[in-house]
Design a protein around this nucleic acid. Structure first.
Lengths: 223, 223
DNA sequence: TTATAATGTGACCATGTAGTCATGTGACTC
DNA sequence: GAGTCACATGACTACATGGTCACATTATAA
């Protein structure tokens, strides 16, 4: 947690510092991200940074927290009613998640940057915890869906959860980047790139993805 | 490419250096991997290393090349006849790829470590190239399969290729790690861990995975 | 105006890195 | 023996980092 000193700053100054720090931590992994670069760009002294935050970890964890909260809120907002059919809900979540990644590539990158091994125990723990949360969330949905008969009984839902996790986590974004013909780096530096993808196109991609998953989970088994 | 000097070394010395370097580059990302640590452990002088290799990149690219060749050879060996059905071949490849990751976690880690952004252009290019190779390989298989009728005509095979790529790349390994209840780190430090997984278990997981994919690609569409 | 507390500052430290180079060494040839 | 050549060495450079600290500046209060 930032020190009180940080919250005593004017809103604009807080925002400027956070924005620049987000820039840095989105375009570099934890270890490569440099506080020296952040303070240089922000035009403040190195020492000041250490009056706002305990240390590098403290800053990063704060950024991560902000980003994660924003993503969850975004998805929650776009999820629609909770009582929908499994595949419908899945489609909404997928759509919201993807949309978020395209609209806020920086935030999304900060979140995924926690995956990189840093040698810092705290970060590893946070990573494990947040991975586990997503995984448990998916697993919960699958369990319910299986009870309701939307998922075949012979499906190993823990395996299915991992597959969904990987498709949702990387597969889909990779495909979109490929389709837009840009690299992650370009997406980060040019936020307008996401506008090249029209909504219908995105919708249809996601429908196809869900349909693929649905066939995999709902259809007849081969044996 | 290493300098001639390196190849003039005795086989054992070459092997010792390569092994220790593999250790280092498997347990640290490119930027965090330290030549100083490698030479210290190998008991040779820093300068010697620079008589064997041009620089850090040169060493890493050599390691990557070794690892990638070994993985391809391994898969090629275990693939079986080439004329098999798409889903059978896929199952063989999946099985071989997974087996390789479990048997040679170090090599497998060196390969996947190239994904991490390093700021080095050459590495980024190698990464893009190798990712593209895998992707094109999968895409080729899918195209053929679609022609033969093993994949529905209304499937967007580029999308399918990306999904397979993510499942094959991370999803499955993550699941296995979860099942064995170990982290990637533990797998790297204890090569015996993979023996906890018996062959039948692995076989059945892979069969389920392929069955999931098969339902997704072969079954009737929902519309 | 003066005293006190809160913030800002940047030179500085310890640490780690990739890479260099003058020098040493030992084997092989003439 | 002298001369040559491939290789070994580790102190050294140049650089970058996270973090500190004595001091300067500003705001608040009496």
């Amino acid at each position: 947690m930032p020190k009180q000193t940080f919250f005593n700053l004017s809103e604009e100054k807080q925002k400027r510092i956070i924005d620049l720090a987000m820039d840095e931590f989105a375009s570099h992994s934890y270890n490569k991200a440099s506080l020296s670069r952040v303070v240089a760009r922000a035009g403040i002294a190195k020492g000041s940074m250490y009056q706002y935050f305990e240390d590098k970890k403290d800053l990063y964890l704060y950024l991560f927290d902000l980003a994660a909260r924003e993503k969850m809120a975004y998805i929650e907002n776009h999820k629609g009613e909770d009582n929908g059919d499994f595949y419908t809900v899945l489609e909404c979540i997928l759509h919201a998640g993807t949309q978020f990644s395209l609209e806020h590539p920086k935030l999304s990158r900060i979140i995924s940057n926690i995956m990189e091994p840093s040698g810092e125990l705290v970060l590893q723990e946070i990573f494990e915890r947040s991975k586990n949360m997503s995984y448990q969330y998916i697993l919960g949905m699958l369990t319910q869906a299986q009870e309701k008969g939307s998922v075949r009984m012979d499906i190993d839902i823990t395996l299915a959860a991992h597959m969904l996790y990987s498709i949702l986590g990387t597969g889909l974004l990779e495909y979109l980047l490929d389709l837009l013909n840009v690299s992650m780096h370009e997406l980060l530096s040019d936020p307008h790139v996401s506008k090249r993808l029209n909504q219908e196109q995105l919708r249809s991609i996601i429908t196809n993805t869900v349909s693929f998953i649905r066939n995999g989970l709902e259809g007849k088994s081969h044996d």
